[in-house]
Design a protein around this nucleic acid. Structure first.
Length: 569
DNA sequence: GCCGTTTTCGGCCCGACTGTTTTCAGTCG
């Protein structure tokens, strides 16, 4: 995807320009452009063809020219020139916590260092101490930063970090007045760098002490009167901030971000002659106009309250200024059925009966049992005979249920040529068919796209499971032309899954929004292999929210009859 | 380098914490 390639180049350019000491606003322009390109749903190639690149937020004449240059020649000369002056390895050095552009530049100018490994040797050899302004403490911080870089590899999965945040909140509940999770975790980003916890209390010292003394706490990184950062399990960094109860709303907004969303709000405040910071919204005389709740502050800026999952500066501020402009987001409680789960018939941990019971306990009106198909040997895929036998079992169990409908389903493999792993005769006997790619993952774009499209053309296939196949931090997406996939999904009334497992979250937020725009419905399912996995639904719903999806865009918010009628097979 | 409810030039978000400093620069979020 050229969007992401160009975004990465703009990101590297912004870092190198910053190290070079360029105009900070120019640096920011490149960063803004990167962020725009990363969250776009259309490809730059198409937009360029239409001559509309300058319509993209943060792209002006100059950057539009650079995008065209990259599309046509595969490189950007300005970036090549920059790399001649500064090694691109400085970008990774800038990624070390505590090392900013000035330090990176200082070190490079004296030692010509161009990688983290080289920097680590210098630091350990005591060479950095010869530099003006660097003493032992700074060296130790750089080395610690390098360690953090190596260990955390930058990110933690949402589904790992959120439970830890819950434990911290529970541990501090007694000493905290109000307490909440903020930051990217509150926005439910798929991966987070750290956990932000916000507390309102008139006695900050007591809260900070309780935090430092809690059994979860590992090494303390910084600790002042309003902020303490420390490391917990697995090197996850938790930042705790304490604010006065009167500025709770302003602080919660500020620390929830995103940074870009906050900047948008501050600009709006400035245009009104106001100032917004973490303490409140102030007029020119310094008088507080709003601070206690987020709703108050948004209202004082003539905005509707914006749900945290939308706060990414993807048009939400503008939408919130118009009455009814914000989406009425789908919620966990709207989901009536989970349509992707496994049992001991293939690679699940529970029997069919136990899985049904676990799902019923969550209050669903319907579920689909969808074990793997025959060619997925590693996951115990069911033979033709087995799947027929399993259908019988599910039908018998369904008859015994009250209040929950159990659909006989399958997660059928999409074979490498786009045909399915069961004959239509078998698929026709099932109530619900999920079709997924599990093999030959490295096909080229055209082949893979054709393969998925062919599967969608089968009238029995209601949804494509984990459509991109990515595994967060471990495996990239298949190479798919999503414009073509979405168009065919809309035409055939085939849904795309939002696989809710926090290791997948597939499709992601950006593709959810694209699906909405393309008129494609999604189905949020857990792909549960045990009872605990069923709880992952909240991550999938949050991803749908981040993609601006409303109840009507999510098929499994509908009653079972209506859901099944959507693609009549 | 972008962008327009003050606009096509002159702005561009704001404060806390740390370390190396005697009043502030750098980094971070």
């Amino acid at each position: 995807m050229k969007n992401l390639e160009i975004a990465a180049i703009f990101g590297d350019m912004s870092d190198l320009l910053e190290i070079q000491g360029a105009n900070p606003f120019r640096v920011r322009a490149y960063r803004n452009a990167r962020s725009s390109l990363e969250s776009m749903t259309d490809t730059v190639e198409e937009i360029a063809k239409r001559g509309k690149l300058e319509d993209i937020q943060g792209i002006g004449k100059d950057l539009a020219g650079k995008i065209v240059e990259y599309i046509e020649s595969g490189k950007i000369q300005a970036f090549e020139d920059l790399k001649k002056e500064l090694p691109v390895g400085l970008v990774e050095i800038l990624g070390i916590p505590t090392v900013g552009p000035r330090t990176a530049r200082l070190i490079f100018d004296h030692f010509g260092v161009g990688s983290i490994a080289d920097l680590e040797k210098l630091a350990k050899g005591g060479k950095l101490l010869t530099l003006q302004g660097i003493k032992e403490k700074t060296v130790q911080n750089i080395l610690r930063g390098i360690e953090i870089c190596k260990r955390r590899d930058g990110t933690f999965l949402l589904g790992r970090a959120l439970p830890i945040a819950g434990e911290v909140i529970a541990a501090l509940a007694e000493v905290a007045g109000q307490i909440a999770c903020a930051g990217s975790l509150r926005r439910m980003k798929e991966t987070v760098h750290d956990v932000d916890i916000l507390v309102a209390s008139g006695n900050a010292d007591q809260v900070m002490k309780a935090f430092r003394d809690s059994p979860l706490a590992g090494r303390v990184l910084v600790s002042g009167p309003t902020k303490t950062s420390l490391l917990v399990t697995d090197g996850l960094q938790v930042d705790l901030r304490v604010v006065e109860p009167d500025s709770w709303g302003a602080a919660l907004m500020y620390f929830t971000g995103s940074k870009e969303h906050n900047i948008r709000l501050r600009e709006r405040a400035i245009r009104r002659g106001l100032k917004l910071n973490e303490y409140g919204l102030f007029d020119e005389a310094g008088k507080v106009l709003a601070s206690k709740t987020e709703e108050d502050i948004y209202a004082a800026l003539e905005l509707e309250w914006i749900p945290p999952t939308l706060r990414e500066d993807r048009g939400e501020v503008g939408a919130s200024a118009r009455s009814g402009g914000l989406p009425d987001l789908v919620e966990v409680g709207d989901i009536r059925g989970d349509l992707h789960m496994h049992t001991t018939w293939s690679d699940g941990a529970l029997s069919t009966a136990d899985m049904i019971e676990a799902a019923r306990a969550r209050g669903y009106q319907y579920i689909a049992i969808t074990d793997h198909s025959k060619s997925l040997g590693v996951a115990g895929g069911l033979s033709d005979e087995d799947v027929l036998e399993h259908i019988d079992e599910i039908r018998k169990l369904d008859k015994k249920q009250k209040g929950i409908r159990v659909l006989a389903g399958t997660e059928v493999d999409i074979r490498k040529d786009g045909t399915l792993d069961y004959a239509d005769e078998i698929l026709g006997r099932l109530d619900f068919v999920v079709a997924s790619v599990h093999s030959n993952l490295r096909q080229d774009r055209k082949t893979m796209t054709g393969r998925v499209i062919r599967a969608m053309q089968n009238p029995h296939v209601r949804v494509i499971g984990h459509p991109t196949g990515r595994l967060l931090g471990d495996r990239d997406s298949y190479d798919l032309d999503f414009d073509a996939v979405m168009a065919e999904a809309a035409r055939t009334r085939t849904c795309l899954e939002v696989n809710a497992h926090y290791y997948r979250l597939d499709i992601n937020d950006v593709l959810c929004r694209k699906a909405r725009e393309a008129g494609v419905k999604v189905i949020v399912s857990t792909d549960a292999h045990n009872a605990d996995d069923l709880r992952n639904l909240e991550y999938g719903v949050a991803t749908a929210q981040r993609g601006w999806l409303e109840k009507e865009h999510v098929l499994n918010t509908r009653p079972v009859g209506e859901m099944l009628a959507y693609k009549a097979s």
